[in-house]
């Protein structure tokens, strides 16, 4: 794979987008472009997510998914375009909940589960957890089935437990939108099944919108209410049935596939 001739053209793609007239927009990315030197990583990416919708972002390696997430999280400035949550460009941990793929903390960092969750609630690392915070942290840990992890050192957690805790951390601020970057990464088969069940429950929410980056067809099939196929630009944006039965499926399922190159200026 990799040559542009092997991919369907944009005109052939499913385009069943949410209906702006009927659905309340929570998140909007408009005309996002980003280049690193001569490499155009994203070109004119636009999409939006209505309240409660679970959008799966898929695409091959090098497709610009991570760059797009960084822009959405405010960690990277786009060359053009903007991101808005509820019409506002201000992105913070109370509007966006983020579950990172890679956990960057130092292996010896002495942190307990409740400290990590409370830190997101407060915006600083807690010296002591206040009573009001304790209640919220307990509640969100219960929601992700991690009540028993209170007091545990985060370095002692399994892959599945770690993802639950990071999910609790993201949810504790009651954000408008949840960003999940390959949450199955580093999780064993049993843990993955539980995680997918939990993500499914979250996807059933009528209020919380989400963007899930995943290479697992099972996760996508179970949780996605809409799928956006990105390969440096929006190739397809439609309902899961349309995309999962489509020629894009190999690219969704196989993360080893590299981004394709186009003849219209996007390298």
């Amino acid at each position: 794979m990799g040559g542009s001739a092997e991919w369907p053209t944009v005109s052939q793609t499913p385009q069943t987008q949410p209906n702006r007239e009927k659905e309340k927009c929570v998140f909007e990315a408009r005309n996002i472009s980003k280049a690193f030197g001569e490499l155009q990583v994203l070109k004119d990416v636009s999409f939006w997510i209505p309240e409660g919708e679970f959008l799966c972002l898929v695409g091959p390696n090098g497709a610009g998914k991570s760059t797009l997430l960084k822009i959405i999280l405010g960690l990277l400035e786009p060359d053009t375009g903007h991101v808005r949550v509820h019409g506002k460009e201000e992105i913070n941990s109370h509007t966006v909940g983020y579950v990172p793929q890679r956990k960057h903390f130092h292996a010896s960092f002495p942190a307990r589960v409740e400290e990590l969750v409370a830190a997101n609630l407060r915006g600083t690392w807690p010296v002591r957890i206040r009573a009001a915070e304790k209640e919220k942290v307990e509640k969100v840990l219960e929601r992700v089935g991690a009540s028993d992890l209170w007091g545990k050192a985060i370095t002692d957690l399994s892959g599945g437990e770690m993802q639950r805790v990071f999910l609790a951390r993201a949810l504790v601020t009651e954000p408008n939108i949840l960003i999940l970057d390959e949450p199955e990464a580093g999780v064993d088969v049993m843990g993955r099944r539980e995680l997918i069940d939990m993500l499914y429950e979250i996807s059933c929410s009528d209020v919380l919108a989400a963007i899930l980056v995943s290479h697992h067809p099972e996760t996508i099939a179970r949780t996605a209410e809409r799928v956006l196929y990105l390969d440096r630009r929006v190739i397809a944006w439609g309902l899961p049935d349309e995309l999962l039965g489509h020629a894009y499926l190999p690219a969704i399922a196989d993360p080893r596939l590299k981004s394709t190159r186009y003849d219209d200026g996007v390298p």
């Binding site: 956990k103 960057h104 903390f105 942190a111 830190a119 997101n120 915006g123 690392w125 010296v127």
Partner: peptide, 20 residues
């Protein structure tokens, strides 16, 4: 600055998203 420094030490990206 201890509480913010601690958060930024734990994970700079998460801390930045929290406004640190």
């Amino acid at each position: 600055t201890w509480t913010r420094l601690a958060y930024a030490t734990f994970d700079p990206a998460l801390a930045k998203l929290s406004g640190v």
